[in-house]
Each structure stands twice: as structure tokens, then as C-alpha cells.
Design a protein around this nucleic acid. Structure first.
Lengths: 232, 232
DNA sequence: CGATTAATTGACAAAACTCAATACGAGTGG
DNA sequence: CCACTCGTATTGAGTTTTGTCAATTAATCG
């Protein structure tokens, strides 16, 4: 029984107990000073819209608990997920006037929300904060660029391997990874179909590289093999 | 006869006449204040390394003339090009200590180079500059995220269409696009093989959507059709 | 418990890749 | 100026990978 499966629609109900990792609130408002400027927080239900494509950029966000997908839809319904955000991650700050991606809660999530204007003004006034916000954006950029290599040049097995290792690192898993997202999200993140993702999962399990203890709970049995696969 | 084909090996020879677009030097040092802080410039020959993957981040760069590819190589030789940079573009400023991509001149190019440390200190001290540098990074991020949709969710024809429209816009082409890069670079940017890129070019030409007046010179005959194809 | 959604599995089709051959273009030397 | 070479691009034939469609199983939730 994966806890966050239990509460699906209850709006604004504090997730109980949600994706909160064993780190202090100070760490969740990540080591930095910037997030402490963001004091209003809101709860979003599973699949709740945080902002959507084409909407005006009004706020900046930071994940307190839960998980967020950052995605873009094509006219014919094809969807690309550009990133996943987890507790401590900061998102939604863009230089353009309108969002080019939308953000949705994957599970019940608590999100800190701050007015963009006030945030930018405050942040840019302070040299350390300005550097920090830039550096955060640069890190997002680097992550995006790395993901381009996955999408452009890796086969299905390598993509899934890279995904699992990334989730393992980012979700602070102990022993097993509790994936908050459904197969469709994984597929849309990796540029594959759900069927292919599913087949690769089964295939990796057959090769004893992973074990699927629950559909959403994965154990990495052979990290070396995964590393080999995802090697860039 | 595409001019930049004529000078291939002469190192540090000023390109004559290279990819310089009809805008003033002030514009090339883009409207902003930041680039004016970068006053040393260097000429790189075709295929010259500007910096490479795993190298320390020492400088920041801006293209004066020519064209640059920003790429990452996998152990087995597969390569992903993350971006192309053209006159006025700013690149190489990263938050990490080491580059995760390398940058090479595609044709003889003149590049402004500035020490990273000095640059960051100066820039972060000034509020307007700090905002500008952040906003530039955010724009790169947005471009990368958009490209992820291309790599993850578009078929070969759609990728090439999107590429041509992008080059058309960025190279300030009048009538026809002079592509500075070979087919291999296009393939590695779009996550395809050179054969597929070549076939799609021929195919688009047969459909009268483009005309290939020279291997590297493309005329867009039907932008509407290209837009339709690349629509996201 | 039954309805509904999510995930898996299989058979087949399609898109893109691989390998190989050929054509083209630019530069070189006779 | 022409033949020759070398790198780049195109084209074709056949294979591979992944996608599509359909059926089945599993999980979730009222």
C-alpha cells in the first residue's frame, strides 16, 4: 500500500503522510535564502493544475511535499514532460510573460507560492540571492540539456535505466524507489509509449536488474548494470 | 558558392566574409550591457574547439561571427548537439565547475571571451546586469525545453520542419537559408541519422515545401506547410 | 463487490536505422 | 583544363526498434 495512493481527490487536504523526505524544513526550503521569501503555501490535489501552458507568469513555486510534472501538450494530444519536481525543487520562474509548459500535481502536494514581481524585485536586489537564483536556473538548464541526450540518442532500455537512476537519486529512496507517477508520465517524460515502458520494466526485471515489488515500487538490484546502460 | 566553404583550415584567420548578419556591432553585442564587458575576442577555425566536455569552466563566450555547436559525446561515439549558437548569442556560462558539453566552431568564427570570475563578479554587482544574465539563462532553458518536445515527441519530418523554421528565424535569412552546418550536425541536433535527414530534405523538396538550391542553401517555399508540420 | 482506470502482454505495422553503393563538390596535381 | 581524391550527401534494400491496436490482467475506489 503506497500511502499517497490513498488520498486522491480531497482538495487541499494535507497529504498524509506524503512524499516528505527525511530532511529538515530548513533543507526543504533549500539551504538557500530565496525560498524563505516564499511564505504562502497551497495544497493541490492529485492532477490539480498549478499553472497551465499559455497562462500568464504570475507566481514562482517551490515543492514542499508531493510531486509535480512540468509538461507541454501538442495540438494532437501528444505530450512531452520536460521535468519532474520534488520536495525542495523550485520551479515556474520564467523570463517570458507566458508559460510554455504547464505544471500539475502528480499526487496531493503542498506548494509554496510567491508573487513573481515581488520575488524578482527582492531577489535581484540582493547580490547573493541574485547569484543563487541564476545558479538554480542554470542547474535546470543543465538538467534539461542532459535530458536532451536521453531523448535524442538513447534507446528505450537506456532511457528507462537513466530514469530509474535519476529517480533513485532524487527521491532519496532507501532500498526501493516509490515512483509517484503513473507509466503514462514516465512514457511522456522519456519520449516512449506506455507499452514500451512497461515492456522494458518487465525486461529489466527478468534480467534481475530491478525488482517490481509493486507497480510503483521498484528495487534496483544491480545499479552497475543500470549505470552501464545509461552511461553517456 | 558558399563563402565560408572557401577557408577551411587557416587557423585564426579572420573569416572572410563570414556569417555576419546585417545588424550593427551594438546589436551583435546584444542590446544589453553584459556583452560589452567582454572585450577580448579570438578567432577559431572550422571545427576548432572552444571548450570541451569535462574541462573546467573558465570563461564565458559570445559569438561575434560564425556559428557554434554545443554538443555532448557518449562513450560509444553517439553525439547529441544541444544547441547552435549564432552571432549575438551568449554561451558557456554554467553554474557547475566543469562543462558537461563541449563547444566547437562550425565554420571560422570570431568569439568574444571573458574570464568567468571577473564577469560574474561585475555582473552580479549590478542589478540590471544580474537580471539580464538570469533572463538570458532562462531563455536558454526555455529553448532547451522546447527542443525536448521535438526530440521526444516529433517524427522525422516534423523535426526537420521545426529545424528549418528555427534556422530561418535565427539566421536572418533573406530568401534562402545558408546552413553553416553539415548534415551530420543537423542529424545529431535532431536525434536522427544523416540518411534520414537527407531523405526528409529530398522528400520536402519533392513536395515543393522547400527547394535545395545548394546542399547547404535551402529556400522555404511553403512556410505554412512547414508550420503545420512543426506545430506543437 | 462491481465498476473503472492503470498496467501488461501479444501480434502486427510503421518508422527510422544500418549497411552498402553511388553521386556530388571542392581542392590538388598533372 | 582534366583526372583524381577525399569528404559529404544521396539513394536503395533489408533489418531492427518502437509504435499501434486489441485483449487481458491487476489495482483502486466507491
Amino acid at each position: 500500500m503506497l500511502h499517497w495512493k490513498t488520498d486522491t481527490i480531497a482538495p487541499r487536504a494535507p497529504p498524509f503522510p506524503p512524499l516528505i523526505h527525511p530532511r529538515s524544513v530548513a533543507e526543504v526550503s533549500p539551504g538557500f535564502g530565496i525560498v524563505s521569501l516564499m511564505n504562502a503555501s497551497r495544497d493541490f490535489p492529485t492532477n490539480g493544475d498549478i499553472f497551465s501552458q499559455y497562462e500568464e507568469v504570475n507566481n514562482v513555486y517551490s515543492v514542499v511535499s508531493g510531486a509535480v510534472r512540468f509538461s507541454r501538450m501538442m495540438k494532437d494530444g501528444r505530450r512531452q514532460i520536460g521535468a519532474f519536481y520534488f520536495p525542495g525543487d523550485f520551479f515556474g520562474l520564467e523570463s517570458e510573460e507566458r508559460h510554455s509548459f504547464s505544471a500539475e500535481a502528480i499526487v496531493n502536494s503542498r506548494i509554496r507560492v510567491t508573487k513573481r514581481g515581488a520575488f524578482l524585485k527582492t531577489v535581484m536586489g540582493d547580490q547573493a540571492c541574485a547569484h543563487e537564483i541564476w545558479s538554480e536556473t542554470a542547474a535546470h538548464l543543465q538538467r534539461a540539456q542532459r535530458h536532451m541526450s536521453v531523448l535524442g540518442r538513447k534507446n528505450a532500455r537506456e532511457r528507462v535505466a537513466a530514469f530509474l537512476l535519476d529517480m533513485d537519486a532524487r527521491l532519496h529512496s532507501q532500498g526501493s524507489i516509490d515512483l509517484p507517477m503513473p507509466r503514462r508520465d514516465i512514457a511522456d517524460y522519456l519520449g516512449l509509449t506506455i507499452e514500451t515502458v512497461s515492456r522494458i520494466f518487465t525486461n529489466l526485471a527478468k534480467s534481475k536488474i530491478i525488482a517490481i515489488s509493486d507497480v510503483r515500487r521498484i528495487v534496483l538490484c544491480n545499479r552497475a548494470a543500470l549505470g552501464q546502460l545509461s552511461e553517456s
